[in-house]
Nucleic acid binder design. Structure first.
Length: 215
DNA sequence: ATCCCGAGGG
DNA sequence: CCCTCTGGAT
């Protein structure tokens, strides 16, 4: 897909969603970071429920560190991998205090050095919370990038690089939400619903699904 | 059965 | 590259 077509693809999503409602509701760096750390192999809805009570008990790194794994666990028992995540989040809060004055660092290296934080989580925080030139690639965006031709690549990193290169810079931040929501609800893994896709005319997917009964 | 906004370790 | 950690929705 040419660069111009990639821009048109993303602009079509933008026009359809002037005020995108993110699945994970947080834009503040600390709450977003914790929410994303909790989100592996779990639905966004479950994470939002868990974090609602968790952040009431511990709205910042200091409070979260005080809570500790045993204090965190009861809030997140309904989500997958909660035992490891309770430890990670507690350790994460402690390191934020010990090494970053209780704030979330803005540097990729510092972010990825935190327990439970890999490249994907770091990219979400860099992009969504800090507005940096980064793009997180999850399973949805990976699939969408390849299927549509928007950002092809055989590794998440390759898809990431293609997206950062092709997305208009001023749209990069919100594109994260647009793409992930589009991947979840329209360009789905099993039955992509091409018949009401707003970017259909810019998509290279060869077998565009015609209607609900054809998939 | 299969999937979900992964990271860490072998 | 592979595996494991884990629960809930569909």
């Amino acid at each position: 897909m040419a660069a111009a077509q990639a821009s048109a693809f993303i602009r079509a999503l933008a026009q359809a969603n002037p005020e995108p409602k993110p699945e994970l509701e947080y834009r503040d760096a600390f709450t977003l970071l914790v929410a994303v750390v909790l989100s592996a192999q779990t639905t966004d809805v479950a994470v939002n429920k868990a974090t609602a009570t968790l952040f009431e008990a511990a709205p910042d790194a200091a409070a979260m560190a005080r809570l500790g794994p045993e204090g965190i666990a009861p809030h997140i028992r309904r989500i997958g991998l909660w035992q490891a995540k309770a430890k990670n989040v507690a350790a994460l809060a402690e390191q934020l205090l010990a090494r970053h004055g209780g704030e979330v660092p803005r540097e990729r290296e510092a972010l990825e050095a935190l327990p439970g934080v890999g490249r994907k989580t770091a990219n979400v925080v860099l992009n969504v919370a800090f507005g940096e030139n980064a793009m997180a690639v999850d399973t949805h965006i990976f699939r969408l990038g390849n299927r549509t031709g928007l950002a092809p690549g055989d590794t998440p990193r390759a898809v990431e690089d293609a997206l950062v290169k092709r997305c208009p810079p001023e749209l990069l931040r919100d594109a994260h939400h647009w793409l992930i929501l589009h991947g979840r609800y329209v360009c789905k893994a099993r039955r992509p619903e091409c018949w009401h896709c707003v970017a259909r005319e810019f998509c290279n997917y060869p077998d565009k699904v015609a209607g609900p009964t054809s998939g």
